[in-house]
Every structure is written in C-alpha cells, then in structure tokens.
C-alpha cells in the first residue's frame, strides 16, 4: 500500500467522522439554537464505549490498562453501544442543563460540564485508564472480513463515508420535516414557539439526545480506526473546531456543513499533520489553531451567515387560491 493511499484514506476517514460531528452540531445549534459547548464529551463517550466493548474484559490493576464495561461485542453492537453511550450521556446532561434558562447560561453550563468530564476521566484511572487512555482497539467488522482498519484504510474510508451518508440523509430528512421547522421556530423565538403550542423543553432534549447519539457514533468510528483514545483527544477546544466548521460553511445549511468540515477540521487540522515539519517543533500545531481562530473571525466579519447560508424555503401559491399569483424569487436567499 502506498503512502499516498494511506494518507488520502486517512483524510477521508477524518472527513467522514467530522462530517458526522458537524451534522449533529448543526442540528443542535443551526436548527434548534442549542449552544452545545460540551459537544466533544458526547463524541468521547461514544469513543470510550466503542473501545471498551471491543477490548474485552479489563485485566484490572494488574493490567497496563483498566476500564469499566469491558466486553467483546460483535459487529454492529460496538457502534450501537457507542451511539447509545452518546445518547445516554446527552440525556443525563440535558436533563439538568437544558432547563428553562437563557442560552448563554446553557452554553456556559455545557462548557463547564465538558471541563469537569475531562478532569474526572483523567483523574479516575479505573474508569477509562485515566490520562494514559485506552489502546489496542480493533475494528470488529474488519475482523469478520479479515482486514484491519489501518491495514485496509480504503475499505475503512468507504465504510465511514457510507455511515456518514446514511446519517446525513436521515438528519436532512428530519430537518426538512415539520419537526425540523419547529426546531427553527424554537431557535428564533422560544417564548413565541412555546405560546404556539410547542413543548420547548421536550424539543430541546430530543435534539440534544439525537445529536449526542450521532456524536457517539462518530467517536466510535474514529477510535476503531486510530485504535486509541485518551483525554488528550477530546479537550474542549475540539468542540470549537466543529463550531468553526459550521460557522464557516453556513449555520443551518447541510451543504455548508460539508464545505465547512472539509475546510476546517480536514484541511486546516488533519492535512498539515502529514506534511513535512516546517520551522521549530510545534510551529505547525500552533499555526493550525491560529488559522482556526482567524477563520472564525473573518467569517463573522465578512460572511456572518457562512459560505453557504441557510436556504430560504419559498412557496408558490397553489392553483385554486384566488388573488394574485405568488412565485418564489430567483433562487431565494
């Protein structure tokens, strides 16, 4: 296998994983207005769960790594477990953080939850092996077909893209349904939406749990490829990478999410990782974060609605309704 095949396949895998994360965050933030600054926690929950249900029973303190829920689940239960973990953690966190309070407070609570979770997982070694994290995670589906994730990255890339495409189609359909429209109403004016009969708390929790499940799934896919997971992989800054992606691409527009994910986490963050080192050690890493910060600021300044803004849903007056005709404008806004 050539280096280039491995390199491009890996970028595609990261694209698929980050696209799943972008879809989930766009549903939560772009459609429902939930400022989920703790998003990365749900991806981490899925990654840890997928790891422990693949690694087998923990060897305890005598082993080089210890963890809870150790088992060896067959495909596809590993990914189901990852999605369920993301959903359950979302439900628990959502039940106390999504009560009727202002959005900025909710965002602060979720950011704090993210910081607390990182500290707890790092400090509590029996949970998920502390700051050393978990290694040796394999790919259950690959074992069935006789390949490993890193040994056959093209297959894994196709697998990741297939899952991302299915989730994309499902979430797109949901977002365009009357339920998605209710989410946008809640985003635009909570009190008015509530006064129009929408149960805001329930809608917010639904979108939080669905987004959490997708985030968990993305974590599961990632850990089965890279084979390891530790607190170093899910700092709170990772949440802002996904936020930047949907800001740059276009909040509330799924095509924008694809563009944003391609630009921010893949081209800005992952692509330079495989390039030859330039300058002193750590320069590229620092420049990556500078670029992300700049992208966010430039976008807010010059293109606040993103490269592909949310599309206007225009209607045409149906035949039979009296009065002058109403036709959509050219292309909408």
């Amino acid at each position: 296998m050539s280096v280039w095949v491995f390199y491009i396949s890996t970028l595609v895998i990261y694209f698929g994983v980050d696209l799943l994360a972008g879809i989930a965050l766009n549903l939560q933030f772009g459609y429902a207005g939930v400022v989920n600054f703790g998003f990365i926690v749900f991806q981490a929950a899925g990654a840890y769960m997928a790891a422990v249900v693949v690694l087998g029973p923990s060897g305890g303190v005598a082993s080089f790594q210890q963890y809870i829920f150790g088992s060896r689940l067959p495909f596809p239960l590993d990914l189901v477990a990852a999605a369920v973990a993301g959903a359950v953690v979302s439900l628990v966190i959502g039940l106390f953080s999504l009560r009727r309070m202002r959005r900025d407070y909710q965002a602060a609570v979720l950011l704090i939850v993210s910081l607390i979770a990182l500290q707890v997982v790092s400090a509590d070694v029996p949970l998920f092996n502390g700051s050393n994290g978990l290694t040796g995670v394999t790919w259950p589906l690959g074992q069935i077909v006789g390949v490993t994730a890193t040994g056959a990255p093209v297959i894994y890339a196709a697998w990741t893209l297939a899952i991302a495409a299915i989730v994309f189609a499902a979430v797109y359909w949901l977002s365009k349904s009357p339920w998605g429209r209710s989410l946008r109403a809640m985003r635009d004016h909570e009190d008015a939406a509530s006064a129009m009969g929408l149960n805001i708390t329930s809608l917010r929790l639904q979108v939080f749990v669905i987004g959490g499940a997708i985030a968990g799934l993305s974590g599961g896919l990632l850990v089965e490829y890279i084979g390891a997971w530790s607190p170093g992989a899910w700092g709170y800054a990772e949440t802002f990478v996904i936020f930047t992606a949907i800001f740059v691409g276009g909040v509330g527009n799924y095509r924008g999410v694809i563009v944003g994910v391609l630009l921010v986490p893949v081209i800005f963050l992952e692509l330079p990782r495989f390039l030859p080192a330039v300058g002193y050690p750590g320069l590229i890493d620092s420049l990556q974060w500078v670029t992300i910060g700049l992208a966010w600021m430039l976008c807010l300044l010059f293109r606040p609605r993103g490269i592909l803004p949310e599309k206007r849903m225009e209607v045409t007056k149906p035949a039979g309704v009296p009065g002058p005709a109403v036709v959509p404008s050219e292309g909408g806004a």
Partner: peptide, 8 residues
C-alpha cells in the same frame, strides 16, 4: 414583536 425572524 416575536416573529420567527429567519423563517418566511
């Protein structure tokens, strides 16, 4: 006013 601002 409480219109849904980014909806038609």
């Amino acid at each position: 006013t409480s219109e849904f601002a980014k909806m038609t």
